[in-house]
Computed example of a mutant assay.
Amino acid sequence: MAPVLTIRNLRKAYGETVILHDVNIEIEEGDFLVLVGPSGCGKSTLLNCIAGLEPITGGSVAIGGREMTKAPPKDRDIAMVFQSYALYPTMTVAKNITFGMKVRGVDSATQKRKLEEVARQLQISQLLDRKPGQLSGGQRQRVAMGRALVREPKLFLFDEPLSNLDAKLRVEMRTEIKRLHQDLGASMVYVTHDQIEAMTLATKIVVMKGGVIQQIGAPSEIYNRPANMFVADFMGSPAMNLIPATVENGQVAIAREGDEPILIDLPGGASLPRDVVLGLRPEDIVEPGARSGAHVVPARCKVEVVEPAGADTYVVSRLGGAAVTARLSAETQARAGQPLDVAFDLGKASFFEPQTGARLN
Rank of each mutant, 00 (worst) to 15 (best):
P3D: 14
T6I: 05
N9Q: 14
Y14G: 04
E16V: 15
I19E: 04
V23A: 10
N24L: 06
G37D: 07
S39M: 08
G42R: 02
G42H: 01
I50P: 01
A51M: 03
A51S: 08
L53W: 06
S60C: 09
V61E: 07
V61M: 03
E67I: 05
M68Q: 14
A71F: 09
D75Q: 13
D75H: 11
M80A: 03
Y85K: 09
A86V: 11
P89S: 09
M91L: 15
T92Q: 13
V93W: 02
N96E: 12
N96P: 10
T98N: 13
V106K: 04
R113W: 05
K114R: 15
E116Q: 15
R120G: 15
L122E: 10
P132T: 10
A144E: 12
R147P: 08
R147E: 08
L149R: 08
R151Y: 04
P153L: 07
K154V: 05
D159M: 04
D159G: 06
E160F: 05
P161W: 01
N164K: 09
D166Q: 04
K168G: 02
R170V: 05
E172H: 11
I177E: 00
K178E: 01
L184F: 14
A186F: 11
S187D: 10
Y190D: 00
H193L: 10
L201R: 00
V207T: 01
V212Q: 13
I222A: 00
A227Y: 02
F230P: 10
S237Y: 13
P238S: 05
P238T: 01
N249L: 06
G250W: 08
L272W: 05
G279I: 04
L280E: 03
G289M: 08
S292L: 09
S292K: 14
P298E: 12
P298F: 05
A323Q: 15
A323W: 06
A326W: 07
Q333P: 12
Q333K: 14
Q333V: 13
A336R: 09
D341H: 12
L346H: 08
G347C: 04
K348A: 09
A349P: 06
F352D: 10
E353G: 03
P354C: 13
